[in-house]
Computed example of a mutant assay.
Amino acid sequence: MAGNSFNITSHISGGKVISGVVSGGQIIQGDYHNYANLSEPKTKSTEEKVDCYPLNTDPKGHMLIIANEKYQNGNHNPGALVDRKKVETLGETLNYDVESSHKNLTSEQIRQELKNFVEKLETEPHVDSAIVFVLSHGTADAIIGTDGVGVKRQEFFDAFKPDKCGALTGKPKLIFFDACRGHKCDPGAAIKEKSAGQQERAADSETDGPYTPDERAAALAKSEIEKAVDETATQEKVAETKGSRPSSPAPQFSAMSDMLIVDATAMDYYAYGTKSGSYFIDAVYEIFKLKYETKSIDEMLHMVHEHVLKKMHGGKMGDGTYALEGTNYSSSLRKKFMFCPPTTD
């Protein structure tokens, strides 16, 4: 979604999906379903009733960091180790254990460290959350190891499903990808207001032309979680048919519940950086460090998006073209996430 001063979000909550374009905290385009009051100002009484995830453990959670800078084929990722240090420092500020921090891993080493991290969550004293940062080369659906071989993004999500990581069932899992998702440069575009006639025609039409890159990014972000949920439901149905499903109460959480997936860039586009680090990680570091005590994760991610756009404004590439980068995320968080949730007293 790079280039426009808005953010695409896709949220799954209570079995209903809401997705659309968000600007300044207001949904200005999208499918509202039964959430029409989301853009209304919150009253004091509403704020007091907000249900936040509790983060009562010390540390609040464990953090996995994978930073790939040196590649065997010479296609290096400069700045990744600078970003790794920033993320480690941020994790310590947020009171997260950052001992699971690794650099320059092959595809199999990535899989192994992901497995080790889940075992850590399962065997050490339980914590209330987990965060993963992946700083690497990537494609639309994979993270590239230093050997040039991809690890599917889905493998990261699968690792935290209840059957693999029961210790975090019902608890927040935040996954940040700072990696390219394609080979396009986003030149940026201005938001154009539709005339009344255009708005009326769009409302009467089932489809308003083909997907724009931003609309496609929103659809893909939403479907990434939905696809994983559907796959799990299919597996459970097969198991039930074979008679191998154990007798137990109905599950309270879906396979992909309580997960936030954040990308530095939209589908099909480059993620940018320099020898001193990426624009995305720099924004996360600066915004989270200043705002984590008072702002929710959604509020901070909106700030991150704007920060990156302003940082790259007018950024001229080597071939003389201009490019922007816009973050996007998908969420199945059931509650509000704050690193310092208000007390319930």
Rank of each mutant, 00 (worst) to 15 (best):
A189T: 12
A189S: 14
A189E: 12
A190N: 13
I191F: 06
I191W: 06
I191V: 11
A196S: 04
G197Y: 01
Q198I: 00
Q198V: 00
E200T: 11
A202E: 15
A203E: 10
S205K: 10
S205I: 06
T207D: 10
G209R: 07
P210Q: 10
P210C: 03
T212M: 05
T212K: 04
D214I: 01
E215N: 04
A218R: 14
L220S: 12
A221H: 08
K222E: 15
E224A: 13
I225P: 01
I225S: 05
I225V: 15
E226A: 14
A228T: 05
A228L: 11
V229P: 01
V229M: 13
V229A: 13
D230Y: 09
D230G: 08
E231I: 02
T232G: 02
T234Q: 10
K237P: 00
A239L: 11
A239W: 00
A239S: 08
T241P: 00
T241I: 08
T241G: 00
T241A: 04
K242L: 11
G243M: 03
S244D: 08
P246N: 02
P246Y: 01
S247Q: 07
P249V: 07
P249Y: 03
P249Q: 09
Q252S: 13
Q252C: 05
Q252H: 09
F253M: 04
F253H: 14
F253W: 12
S254T: 14
A255Y: 03
A255C: 06
M256E: 10
M256S: 11
S257K: 04
M259H: 04
L260K: 03
I261T: 05
V262E: 06
V262Q: 05
D263Y: 14
D263I: 03
A264V: 08
A264Y: 01
M267W: 04
M267C: 07
Y269V: 01
Y269G: 00
Y272D: 07
Y272H: 09
Y272M: 05
G273T: 01
G273S: 02
T274Q: 08
T274P: 01
K275N: 06
S276Q: 10
S278L: 09
S278C: 09
I281G: 07
D282P: 02
Y285L: 02
I287S: 02
I287A: 04
I287E: 10
F288C: 06
F288M: 08
K291P: 00
T294N: 14
K295M: 11
D298S: 12
E299Q: 13
L301Y: 03
H302L: 08
M303E: 14
M303Q: 11
V304K: 03
E306D: 13
E306I: 11
H307M: 07
H307Y: 14
K310L: 14
K311T: 15
K311Q: 15
G314P: 02
G314H: 06
G314W: 08
G315A: 15
M317W: 08
M317V: 07
G318K: 12
D319W: 09
G320F: 12
Y322W: 10
Y322N: 07
L324K: 12
E325I: 09
E325F: 04
G326H: 07
G326W: 02
T327P: 03
S330N: 09
S330I: 10
S330K: 05
S332N: 11
L333K: 06
R334P: 04
K335A: 02
K336A: 15
K336M: 13
K336P: 01
F337V: 04
F337M: 12
